[in-house]
Design a protein around this nucleic acid. Sequence first.
DNA 1: CGAGACCTTGATGGTTCTCAAGGTACGTGG
DNA 2: CCACGTACCTTGAGAACCATCAAGGTCTCG
Lengths: 248, 248
Amino acid sequence: MPTPDTHSFAHDCDECPIRHRAVCSRCEGKELDRLEEMKYYRSFQAGQTVIWSGDRMDFVASVVKGIATLSQTMEDGRRQMVGLLLPSDFLGRPGRDNAAYDVTATTDLVMCCFRKKPFEEMMLHTPHIGQRLLEMTLDELDSAREWMLLLGRKTAREKIASLLSIIARRDASLMLKRPSGRISFDLPLTREEMADYLGLTLETVSRQMTALRKDGIISLEGKRHVVIEDFDVLLEVAGDDNDGGMLS
Amino acid sequence: MPTPDTHSFAHDCDECPIRHRAVCSRCEGKELDRLEEMKYYRSFQAGQTVIWSGDRMDFVASVVKGIATLSQTMEDGRRQMVGLLLPSDFLGRPGRDNAAYDVTATTDLVMCCFRKKPFEEMMLHTPHIGQRLLEMTLDELDSAREWMLLLGRKTAREKIASLLSIIARRDASLMLKRPSGRISFDLPLTREEMADYLGLTLETVSRQMTALRKDGIISLEGKRHVVIEDFDVLLEVAGDDNDGGMLS
DNA sequence: CGAGACCTTGATGGTTCTCAAGGTACGTGG
DNA sequence: CCACGTACCTTGAGAACCATCAAGGTCTCG
C-alpha cells in the first residue's frame, strides 16, 4: 500500500468496511440516507494529533481505518492512555462541547465525521443510533474496567502479555476465528506507546519483551513483528482465566 | 438511625430520593406507572455480597441508598475495584445474562430492582430510559478513565489524596456547593477497600494516611473520620488540575 | 555519510510490597 | 464488670520490582 488514499473510501455507505459494526449499523433506508448526507471524511497521518483535550469539538466520528489513541496528561508530563480507537469505534460525546482527552492517530487514520449539532438532532428522533451507541459505550466501559485490573494489579510481565493477547485476539477476530496456537502480527504501537498504555516506562516494556523472548513465549522479527508461540501459554502469563474472550 | 428499615423507602416513585437522577429520571406519567408496577426493593447489610461475577442475573437495579462496589478478582486472589455505585447509579447491563463483576454492599444498601426481561422490553419502546442510561454510562466511562490515570501513573500519596478529594467532592455535592477550605466527612471504606480501589496494599494506604496527617494535610478523628484542612492543598497533592470538577 | 527516531541494555536507587508484630475498638459471654 | 475474641488499623524491617539515568545499537531517510 504505497499511497494512503482518502478517496478510496466508501463514499457510499453500502460499501463501507465498518457498516455492520459502527454507530450507524442499525440504520437503514431513510435514516442511512440522512446520515450519508451529513457525513464527511477526514484523514490523518500517523503521529498527527486529531484533537487536544479541552479543545472545542464540533463533530463526532467513527474510525473507518487505522488506529487512534485517547490519552490524558498530567501537568508534569506523566501520560496515560485511556482508550484505543479501532475501526468502527466512536469518537466524541453527544452533549459535550469540548474534547475530554488528547486524541492521536497512531497509524494513518480515516474517520467518518458528522457535525455534532445535526447528529444530536437526529439522535433525538432515531432510537437506532442511540441504542447502538449505548451498546458500544457499555462495551467500552467493560474494556476500561478490564484495563483497571491490569493497571492496578498486574506485574509488568503480565501487562505486556495482556496487551499482546488483546492485539492477537483482535487480529484473529478480523479473520473470524478464535485465537489459538501460533499467531503472528505487527505491533501497531511503539515501545513508548505501549508504556503509556500499560502504566510502565519504555525501558521496562523493552526489558519485558526481551524476557518473554528469552523464555520462548514470543519471537521477534525486527522490532515490530511479533510471533506468539502458543496463545494459551500467553494467556497464562497474562494472568487471565482462559475461559472468556468471546469472539468479536 | 437505629433500625435500617427497607420499608421506609419510596414505594411511591414521586417521593423517591433518586427520582431526578436515576435511570427513570426522564420518565413521566404512563412510563413511570409502568416502571412502578415492575419494580421491587431489595436490601443488603453492610458487607453482604449482592452478586458474584459470573452468576446469572435476572434483574437490573438502581441504588436508592448506600454504597456498593464492583470488583474483579484474579485467580490468585489479587483484587481490584473497578467501580463504586452511589445512590442513583445503575447496576446491570441490558442484554447480558451474567454478572461481569462481584458486587458488594459496603454500607447498608437499598436497591430498586426491575426484572430484566420486562425492563429490556420496555426500553425498546421508551427512548427516555435508553437516553438516560446512555448519559449515565458515558459519565461512568469518564470516571473509569480518570481512574485509569490514577492507577497507571499516580504515586501512593497522590492516589490517597485523589480518593479523599473525590469523596469530599461527592459529600459537598449533596449540599449543592463547591468544595473548598476545611471539609470533614466519614470514610465509607476500610483501609483494605481503599487499597483495593487504589491498586495498593492496605499497609501502604495506612502509611500514606499517616504521612498526610503528619504533613498537616488532613486530621484523623478515630479511624474513619477525616478532616481536610484545605481542599485546594489536597487537590495539589492529588496532582489534579484544580480547574475542572463540575458541580453535580 | 550523518541525523534522527526508535530500541536495547546496564547500573543504581527509590517506592511499594511482603512478612511480621503489636495496638485499638468493639461486642460477647463468662 | 472483665476477659476474651475478632475485625480493623499501625508500624517496622527487609526484599522485590520497577523507575531513573546513562550509554550505545539499529534502522531509515535525506
